[in-house]
């Protein structure tokens, strides 16, 4: 799995540099190619549009930071090709696209204070590295760009993803049946004797639903841990698909669910009321959105 990730194809745009970084850029280009990464170097005579197209075709850009200022606020300053390419790259909006800044000296002094500005301007898709070694830099780049594909479960979209333990299949079946009358539901029964990558399956399907529900009756030892793990694997409070834990009052106790406070909502109800609890939660979430 790990090696597969490293074998992915990566295409980088190695931006122009200030004169003090020419040699470093040359060495970096060699190391990148040895690492199996395709390097795109801009042509001296390329227009801004051509450069934009070149960058757009790459997975990321690399900008080397030296002592000399590679851009100025007006955009028409010294060594403007490096500055121009930086501004073009910043305007690229593409999923997974990244900008790498490498400051191999690691220094910020009075002559290159612009590095501070760049560090302050770092946004989500920007990576700044101050490592002195090209190899370390390239290794980092390759790891960052080797994105694990998101698992997709092809069950189709639904309002509610209803997950339960195989131990509780009887009552879960009844609830599923009642719930189906209210909303579209996809169900998943977890059987612990099967060696299945449930978390991948769940992550894939969850992204196609509006809420996720974990239900339990007898499987109280399993449910809370399971719900927490699913919450963790799917982004916690930052997730767009909220989770709800529905506990059958046969076996559930409030104190066992205390660990979920501040994490997700839950209810302890009779099985006949559980579909309503879920529906209320669903309405609350969808109304808010």
């Amino acid at each position: 799995m790990f090696l597969e990730l490293l074998n992915q194809d990566i295409k980088v745009f190695l931006a122009d540099v200030t004169s003090d970084m020419t040699n470093t850029r040359h060495n970096l280009s060699n190391v990148l190619q040895r690492a199996g990464i395709e390097v795109v170097v801009p042509n001296d005579k390329a227009t801004a549009d051509e450069i934009r197209r070149q960058i757009d075709a790459c997975d990321c850009t690399i900008h080397l930071l030296g002592v000399l200022n590679f851009y100025n606020e007006s955009g028409a300053g010294y060594d403007s090709s490096a500055g121009l390419q930086y501004r073009i790259a910043r305007a690229i909006k593409k999923d997974g696209f990244k900008m790498f800044f490498w400051n191999p000296s690691g220094l910020v002094n009075s002559r290159n204070l612009y590095v501070n500005n760049i560090r302050r301007d770092i946004v989500e898709n920007t990576i700044y590295s101050a490592t002195t070694s090209e190899i370390v830099f390239v290794e980092e780049l390759r790891t960052i760009m080797s994105v694990k594909p998101k698992p997709v479960t092809d069950l189709g979209a639904a309002d509610i993803y209803f997950i339960y333990n195989d131990l509780d299949k009887e009552t879960a079946g009844e609830i599923l049946s009642m719930l189906s009358d209210l909303q579209t539901v996809k169900g998943l029964s977890i059987n612990m004797s099967f060696a299945t990558e449930y978390n991948d399956i769940i992550s894939g399907q969850l992204s196609q639903c509006k809420i996720g529900v974990v239900y339990y009756d007898y499987a109280e030892d399993w449910a809370v841990s399971f719900a927490r793990q699913i919450w963790k694997d799917n982004g916690g409070r930052g997730s767009v698909v909220p989770l709800f834990l529905a506990a059958n009052k046969n076996h559930a106790q409030e104190k066992e669910l205390n660990v979920l406070k501040g994490i997700m909502e839950y209810s302890i109800s009779d099985k006949s009321v559980i579909p309503l609890d879920i529906k209320i939660f669903y309405d609350k979430v969808t109304t808010k959105n």
Partner: peptide, 16 residues
């Protein structure tokens, strides 16, 4: 521990 308690581990029983 949380991973196996959550059931992402093929084992004989449900609980640990």
């Amino acid at each position: 521990i949380p991973y196996i308690r959550a059931g992402f581990f093929k084992a004989k029983y449900n609980s640990w």
